[in-house]
Structure formats: C-alpha cells, structure tokens
Amino acid sequence: MIICKFCVFCVQILAFKSRLNIQKPKMDIQTLYKMKSKFVARKVGNELIIVPLTDNVAQMSELFTLNETAKFLWENISEHASNEDIEKLLTDEFEVDAETTRRDVAAFLSNMDILLKK
C-alpha cells in the first residue's frame, strides 16, 4: 500500500487484462459466482469495470477492467453454471475453438484467484 504524506485514505489500483497465459486455475466458476455479490460492476463501452467491496484501506481500489471476453464471462456466471457451461457459451458467442475458450476461462479464473487473494 502506498501512503501519501497528508492523507488517510490511500488507495492503489490494479487495472487488469484478463487474457493471460495462466493454465491451471485454482478457482472454479461456482466459487467466483459466490464472490460476485462482493463486487460492483459498471459497463463502459464494450468493457466492464468491477470494484470489490472492502473493509479496509489496504485492499481498496483494486479496480479491474475486463475486456469484452471477460465481460461476457462475468455476466454469464450463474448459480448452477460449470466451467464447461461457460466455455460452451463463449465458444458459441465468439465463434472460437474449444481449446481457445478453455484457455481463456482458465486464464480468467487464475487471474481472479490471484487478484482476490491480494
């Protein structure tokens, strides 16, 4: 955390792109779904900003910018959806092959896992 000389509210940002090559997610769609209510989201164009609720300054202002693919994924997480369900939705929506969507979903979940543990 960065503390400014005159202020007690210090904040930090982590703007983040979801497409990274991380292969082994420790989080699954259902875990993320349960955490979704702890975020506030706002659409800006084709992107989505998500901001986690927090109870202290150390975790404040972890603002995440989700690209179009990640935004679609975030918006389609539902109570009973599995990783496979989401991968199928992505494949249909963006007309890409199954291996690409599997990698994208895995990368997204890995990123969320890392960011939520900060």
Partner: peptide
Amino acid sequence: TRVMAFCIQNN
C-alpha cells in the same frame, strides 16, 4: 479506472 484509482474513497 486509472483516474478513479486516485480518488479518496471508502469502498
């Protein structure tokens, strides 16, 4: 997000 990062806030 880049501008909002420097906003003083209680989230």
